[in-house]
Nucleic acid binder design. Structure first.
Length: 582
DNA sequence: GTGATTTGACCGAA
DNA sequence: TTCGGTCAAATCAC
């Protein structure tokens, strides 16, 4: 018997062996998935169909053993991944001996789990799994041997390449997730599954590499869930998987504490923590899912967290994300170099947002208005491998150290990557300002003169002015109920004429993460009913998108504590996305 | 005339 | 040596 790292292995042999090991593991995991998909809970015999399903029932004790074993396996994967990152970070090009030592170290840790391997052979049906009774506790899984029950799991004979992943065959993650889990409904209705449902584009096929939640456990109180999911996001779009990954805002309790705010459209579970194993770059940055290109585009030490995440699957912003890193560092008991500490400190002072240019409001300056009035441009720089120059701004208030770098993304120049460095120490640190009413009205009048009532309505609605609705009525006429909401006016304008009498009814709103760690977007469905002799009786429109963003916890607290109305949320919407159905 | 922006040069980090 | 961040003189807009 030969073990990885136990002999004189060439690099090619190591690669081949690791590839074989992982391929076997993936096949086992896929078959486990398939088996669980066939499984019907024994507690609900009435829901079972024929004898095939009867045979598929697995005793709960065995399921618990499976779960413990799977958790154990995932923890080892995580440990191996951490070790691999450590090796790569400490030695960009480790000699084979280092690889062997690393493999030996991991193998010793995994001594209770890994069995001997024969050198490269075609994948075979594994031997029958010999097991004993499962342990009642799944804690301390790293130190615990979690045997399997005697289960006959039919494995495919064909290779992975010839057998697409179930997710690639058309199953969406949310449906997989819902079907695969047997826990409380709160899991299915969690923000993550909610986002999974909300995120895919209508016509998009799931990514070929798939993505799914693989593991859910409850930690502490029942209301708190630790969601651990692995997302394989090698494909770039069309799922925009990256837009929902590593979303630390879901751990933001303020959001739950202020249900009256727009964010209350999110499910109201009380406390979530998320652990993300892998994710890809923001879709707006990585047209080719090229981490290296994305890294170049992100640029600068301020985005170290994103870069690390791109390369190694580190969660952005979430406190849970760093647990393994902290654990790893404490295990090694090492002192971080001064330069690294300083870089981290600098990183903590910076924040990257993705902001969309708002037509009408931001057209003049050419960059999104974040509400701060004191930005002064002090530089402009062409950045390598980026199509657009990066602008450098700093707060013009004396002794204020706040800066920001603004760069259009290559994929969509109307979306800007805005990197904030340093905090405002000036009194004008509030993130939003109100546009001068005269300017707003002048712009809106211009739009009306050009026949673009929708743009005028949007400009007014986005002006943060409490008189916007009245201005809109006076400028655009009509009796548009809910005239302050851009989606309504946009839908109405999509009919080319403003109706004389319109009533509206909000049917639903779905909030989802749009881009960046502190931004959400809403898709609304609104019914517009017209009376008074119109040929149209009702229209249901869907597709306008509102976003709200904030740059820090403090900003959010300020935002949440304000007495704001609906118009005080930055609102954008895409006219082309409106779908009116008559 | 004043303030904001542009742009080439400079500098430090890697 | 390269690249990104900053400076400051020149230029522009109001």
């Amino acid at each position: 018997m030969l073990r990885l790292g136990g002999g004189n292995w060439s690099e090619a042999q190591c690669v081949e062996k690791v590839e074989e090991m992982l391929s076997r593991a993936i096949i086992h995991q896929e078959d486990l998935w398939g088996m669980l998909m066939l499984h019907s809970p024994a507690a609900d015999p009435g829901a079972m169909g024929g004898p095939e399903q009867q045979q598929a029932v697995i005793p709960s004790m065995v399921l618990r053993a499976l779960m413990a074993k799977l958790e154990n396996s995932m923890d080892w994967c995580h440990l191996a991944l951490c070790r691999l990152k450590e090796i790569l970070s400490n030695s960009p090009c480790p000699p084979p001996a280092s690889l062997a030592a690393a493999a030996r170290s991991s193998r010793e840790l995994a001594a209770t789990t890994f069995r001997d391997y024969e050198p490269a052979k075609p994948i075979q049906r594994p031997q029958q799994l010999i097991v004993s009774k499962p342990s009642p506790s799944s804690s301390s899984k790293l130190k615990q041997h979690t045997p399997l029950s005697q289960i006959h799991v039919p494995l495919r004979e064909e290779s992975l390449a010839s057998s697409p992943h179930p997710l690639a065959a058309g199953l969406q993650p949310s449906s997989c997730f819902s079907a695969g889990q047997s826990g409380p409904s709160t899991v299915t209705d969690s923000p993550w599954s909610y986002l999974f449902r909300a995120t895919p584009k209508a016509s998009a096929a799931p990514p070929a590499t798939g993505g799914t939640m693989t593991h859910i456990t409850h930690q502490g109180q029942q209301s708190a869930q630790h969601m651990h999911f692995v997302m394989n996001s090698e494909s770039s779009d069309p799922w925009n998987c990256t837009d929902i990954i590593s979303q630390p805002t879901f751990t933001h309790k303020s959001k739950v504490d202020h249900p009256e705010r727009a964010l209350n459209h999110l499910p109201r579970e009380t406390s979530f923590s998320c652990r993300v194993e892998a994710f890809a770059a923001p879709s707006c940055l990585t047209a080719g899912a090229d981490a290296e290109a994305a890294k170049r585009q992100l640029g600068g030490k301020a985005q170290n967290s994103e870069i690390a995440a791109l390369e190694g699957g580190i969660e952005l912003g979430s406190t849970a994300s760093h647990s393994s890193d902290v654990q790893d560092r404490s295990r090694r008991n090492t002192v971080r170099p001064k330069r690294e500490r300083e870089a981290t400190a600098e990183e903590e002072k910076s924040e990257v947002q993705y902001q969309r240019l708002r037509p009408g409001l931001d057209a003049k300056k050419g960059i999104p208005d974040d509400g701060h009035r004191g930005w002064k441009k002090y530089g402009n720089k062409a950045i390598q491998n980026a199509n657009f120059c990066r602008g450098y701004y700093k707060c013009s208030i004396k002794n204020c150290n706040a800066k920001k770098m603004v760069q259009p993304t290559d994929k969509d120049p109307s979306i800007f990557q805005v990197t904030y460095v340093g905090k405002h120490t000036c009194s004008s640190a509030h993130p939003r300002k109100r546009q001068p009413r005269a300017n707003v009205m002048a712009g809106a009048t211009t739009f009306v003169a050009a026949g673009d009532q929708a743009a005028a309505a949007q400009l007014l609605a986005s002006s943060n002015d409490p008189n916007a609705a009245a201005d809109q009525r006076s400028l655009l006429g009509g009796t548009v109920a809910g005239a302050g909401t851009p989606e309504i006016t946009d839908m109405v304008s999509s009919m080319d004429t403003l109706p004389s009498n319109v009533t509206t009814e909000s049917l639903s709103e779905q909030w989802q993460v749009l881009t960046g760690p502190h931004e959400t977007a809403a898709t609304t469905t609104t019914r517009v009913t017209m009376t008074g002799g119109s040929d149209l009786e009702s229209v249901e429109g869907r597709g306008s998108t509102d976003t709200t963003s904030w740059s820090s916890d403090d900003d959010w607290k300020n935002f949440a504590s304000e007495d704001v109305d609906e118009n005080d949320i930055y609102s954008y919407f895409d006219r082309n996305s409106v779908e009116g159905v008559i």
